[in-house]
Computed example of a mutant assay.
Amino acid sequence: MKAAPQDQRRLLDLQAVDIALAQLAHRHKSLPELAEIATISRELSALEDQRVRAQVAVDDLDRDIARFEKDIEQVRTRKDRDTARLNAGGALREIEGLQHELATLNRRQSELEDAELELMEQREGAEQALNEVKKKLAEASGRRAAAEARRDAAYAEITKEQEFKTQSRGPLAADLPADLVTLYDKIRADTGLGAALVRSGRCGGCRIELYGADLARVKSAPADEVVRCEECRRIMVRTAESGL
């Protein structure tokens, strides 16, 4: 393939833009905020599991306390009924029976209230644990929101730079021979680098020094000949720095 020496040199300008675009794309995928957000998200997931377990513990205790409250209320109702019957008087045997039942109900109420008090103390601890988890969740959510804001700001900056570089690439590529750009783009798609400057007798793509027949081939090639490296197959751009 033939291309004017100045067009070949301008491939380096095009390559510089493409390198910048590749770096921006890599930066877009490897922002430190992305790893930070992923770490915090895992932390939030674990904390949410803890929150669910803590909430279940509180809910279970609430149900148990409610059941005790119901039982205590039933005992109170029976005590009120028996007290009313006792106050109304009656046969001695009936009165003794009511007194015995009231004593039993008092013991039962005391046992239920003690058990309820123990559950209420447990609930206080469970609720405190739940609130601690909620506090950690809120703090981690805040850290993730801050990291997402930094990520979005970085994305906006990268996108702006990408748009600028893409806009500058268009005129550069359009001003070069179409077949030269097609070859360059194909090589770049395969290797990541379409053209490289030959500097001091060394290919700028693979960094291998030219010697022997390969050096002679490059030296003897006309200035408008598009020369490619035998090792990396990239277009070798020759300038005064090439040392040929």
Rank of each mutant, 00 (worst) to 15 (best):
A138E: 15
R78G: 03
E139D: 14
Q15P: 08
R63S: 13
V75T: 04
G201N: 01
V58R: 03
R93K: 12
P222K: 10
A25M: 08
E124V: 08
A213C: 01
E157D: 06
A146Q: 06
L98I: 14
E94S: 04
E111L: 08
S220H: 14
K160L: 13
P32T: 07
L98F: 10
M236K: 02
D82W: 08
E209G: 02
C229Q: 00
T77G: 03
D152E: 14
Y211G: 04
D13F: 12
A84Y: 11
L61A: 07
A156F: 07
R199Q: 14
R108P: 02
M236W: 01
G89L: 06
E225S: 05
L183C: 04
V237T: 04
A22S: 13
A57M: 09
L34T: 08
P32W: 09
L215A: 10
G97V: 08
I65M: 04
S242I: 13
L137W: 11
P171A: 02
D80K: 12
L215W: 13
A213D: 12
L98E: 06
A84K: 14
E157I: 09
R76P: 09
D62R: 08
L98K: 08
D80C: 05
C206F: 02
L137T: 09
L210H: 01
R233D: 11
L197N: 03
D152W: 04
V218M: 04
L61G: 04
V56R: 03
D71L: 13
H28S: 10
N87V: 11
L11E: 00
R27G: 10
V181W: 00
